[in-house]
């Protein structure tokens, strides 16, 4: 199509805007990577005296011989990293299980379905600081001990579960329930249908939910600051460290986390694309031209939120 002058102008403006957004999004990671090799300070660019010492410090926080800069804070990130990993793993698995169960329930019509849909999202839409404060006060009232395994885990599940719930609803609304009916006609009972048909077909959604749960929990700070008691997750440790002094060790840590996240998400996206192709064919063949639906079956009319 012939572009008008306005469109040509937009092509330039839009291109620049897009490029700027990408720069603003990725420059920090680049800078962080560079500064993680700085030996002393991060406040000066370009970094002088490059070395791997920050990474050494990160992994050997007890080796005091490494910390030679006067006034340098001795921060041990290893404990918080382990705790955050454990919390994120537990959160993602439990939140995904609960979200999947709830989303499956929402395929049926039951009383209170409309209101409960909003209730299910409450943990996500309420500003995090409010839930952090509220849950802390609630725990005090009912004498629930604060800590990552108790209040921390509950808060994190309440926070990440709605994301998984939404992911599952989106998938289930596009899920052809007649394949479940076909399975039951072939002799499969409810549990077998779930195990051999529903769950495998929902695998990409399960992984998406796990990913949401893991990354959102691993990064959580709005709620965590008030409910973890004496336990320290990584974000809490990081924000604590920034109030003292930002050292290159923090950037070494940040670089590794960013690298880890990118690899994790890229792997997921590759898997997702493979699954999508497995079910729906290669992207080139634009299949799925549903023939006219003369008489939609009740299952096809299906549950819509």
């Amino acid at each position: 199509m012939q572009l008008s002058s306005g469109q040509r102008a937009f092509r330039i403006i839009g291109g620049i805007a897009f490029a700027l957004i990408l720069i603003v999004l990725y420059a920090p990671f680049l800078i962080m990577g560079m500064l993680s090799f700085a030996e002393r300070t991060t406040a000066v660019f370009p970094p002088k005296d490059l070395s791997f010492i920050s990474y050494q410090k990160l992994f050997n926080p007890d080796d005091f011989s490494l910390f030679r800069i006067p006034g340098e804070p001795l921060v041990n990130y290893l404990g918080p990293i382990k705790l955050s990993l454990a919390l994120a793993l537990l959160t993602s698995v439990l939140a995904t299980a609960l979200a999947l169960m709830a989303a499956l329930a929402f395929r049926e019509r039951f009383k209170g379905r409309g209101v409960l849909f909003y209730v299910m999202l409450l943990g996500m839409v309420t500003p995090g600081i409010i839930l952090g404060l509220g849950f802390r006060l609630f725990a005090d009232q009912v004498a629930l001990p604060t800590g990552w395994m108790t209040t921390g885990l509950l808060t994190h599940i309440a926070w990440t579960m709605p994301f998984g719930f939404i992911v599952f609803l989106i998938f289930l609304n596009r899920f052809d329930r007649t394949i479940e009916e076909a399975a039951s006609m072939l002799g499969a009972n409810t549990w077998t249908v779930f195990r051999t048909v529903t769950l495998p077909v929902l695998a990409p959604a399960v992984l998406a939910s796990l990913l949401f749960g893991f990354t959102l929990s691993f990064d959580e700070i709005q709620r965590s600051s008030l409910v973890l008691g004496s336990d320290q997750t990584l974000p809490i440790a990081v924000i604590g460290a920034t109030t003292v002094r930002i050292t290159p060790v923090l950037y070494a840590l940040g670089s590794l986390i960013a690298l880890f996240s990118f690899v994790l998400v890229a792997t997921y996206l590759l898997f997702f694309e493979r699954e999508r192709q497995r079910f729906y064919g290669a992207p080139t063949e634009d299949a799925d031209s549903d023939a006219d639906d003369n008489e939609p079956t009740p299952a096809r009319r299906g549950a819509r939120a």
């Binding site: 076909a182 399975a183 077909v201």
Partner: peptide
């Protein structure tokens, strides 16, 4: 009886094959 207890076979308009 539930569908899986009836021992009937069914062929669906939109095939309803297992995509996985």
């Amino acid at each position: 009886l539930l569908p899986n207890e009836r021992g009937f076979g069914m062929v669906f308009q939109h095939f309803a094959l297992f995509p996985h």
